[in-house]
Simulated assay, not measured.
Amino acid sequence: MPDPILERALRQVRAEKARDRRRRGVAVAAVCAALAVAVLAGGVHLGRRSVPGERVLVATTADGVRITTTVTPADGWVRLRAVVDGVAAGERCRLVVTDVRGRRYTAGGWVASRLGDTALAGAAVVDPDDLATVDVVTEDGRVLVTSE
C-alpha cells in the first residue's frame, strides 16, 4: 500500500519543477525576443547611417535660421536631405550647392511654411569631393545660412 504523504509530497515536487521549467522558458523567450529586436533595430540604424562618405552639415545663424544637411555621395554627384528652420513664412528659398571652384548649383526650392521646419531632398551634379558649401538662398539672392 502506497504512502499517501509520500505520494502527495512527490506530486508537489513534480508540480513545482514543471512550474519552474515554464517560468525559465518564458524568461528565456523574452530575453531572446528582446535581443532579436535590438539586433534588428541596430541593423536598420546602421543601414541608414553608414553610407561610406556620407556627411552631415549643420549651421545656425545669429537670427535663428538653421540648416541640417545630410550629403550622400553618388558617382560624380551628391544627394541631399536637408531640414531648414527659422525662415520667415512665405519666403521663397532655394537650396544651393557651391563647389570648390565657386560654381553654384540649385538642388531644390520651396516656400517657407508658417508651420515650422521644412524637410526636403535634392541633388546636384557636383563631385562629392568638390562640394564646398550648402546654402539657403532667397529668391532675391540673400544667403540666409551657409553650412560647410
Rank of each mutant, 00 (worst) to 15 (best):
P73T: 10
A123V: 04
A59N: 02
E54C: 08
G43H: 01
R114T: 05
R23K: 12
R104I: 02
R81D: 15
L10F: 08
R55S: 10
R22K: 10
A132V: 04
G25V: 06
A59P: 02
L10S: 06
T70W: 08
V65H: 10
G90W: 07
T69V: 14
T98S: 12
V28H: 05
V71H: 01
A36N: 03
Q12M: 06
L40D: 05
V134C: 03
G108S: 07
V78L: 09
A74D: 05
E16L: 14
G122C: 05
R103L: 15
D20C: 01
R19S: 09
L131G: 00
W77Y: 15
K17Q: 13
D20S: 08
D127S: 05
A88H: 09
V125F: 14
A18P: 03
T70M: 00
V111M: 10
T60Y: 04
L10R: 14
L40N: 07
R92D: 09
L115G: 09
V39D: 01
V145A: 05
A9H: 04
A15E: 12
I5W: 03
Q12D: 09
K17T: 13
G53T: 09
T69K: 02
A119Q: 11
G47K: 08
A74M: 11
A36H: 04
G109Y: 06
E7T: 15
G90A: 10
L6V: 13
A59L: 04
L57K: 03
A30K: 13
G86N: 11
A9T: 11
R104P: 00
R21K: 10
A121P: 02
E139A: 15
R114S: 15
R103F: 15
T72E: 07
A33V: 14
R94G: 06
V137F: 03
I67D: 03
R11Q: 12
T61N: 10
G64T: 08
V71M: 06
A112M: 03
G122I: 03
G109N: 09
A88E: 14
T133W: 06
A119S: 13
G47Q: 07
R19C: 01
A107W: 01
V31Q: 13
G42Y: 12
A9L: 13
V100Y: 04
V87C: 04
G64Y: 05
R55Y: 10
S147Q: 02
A132M: 09
P52T: 15
G86S: 11
V51E: 14
A27E: 12
R104Q: 14
T70H: 03
D130Y: 02
A119G: 11
R94N: 07
E7N: 13
R103E: 15
G47C: 07
V126C: 01
A88M: 11
V44M: 10
L144H: 04
A82E: 00
R19E: 13
A119D: 09
V56K: 07
D130F: 06
P128V: 08
D117W: 11
G25D: 10
A34G: 07
V13I: 14
V13W: 08
T61E: 08
V125S: 11
R14Y: 10
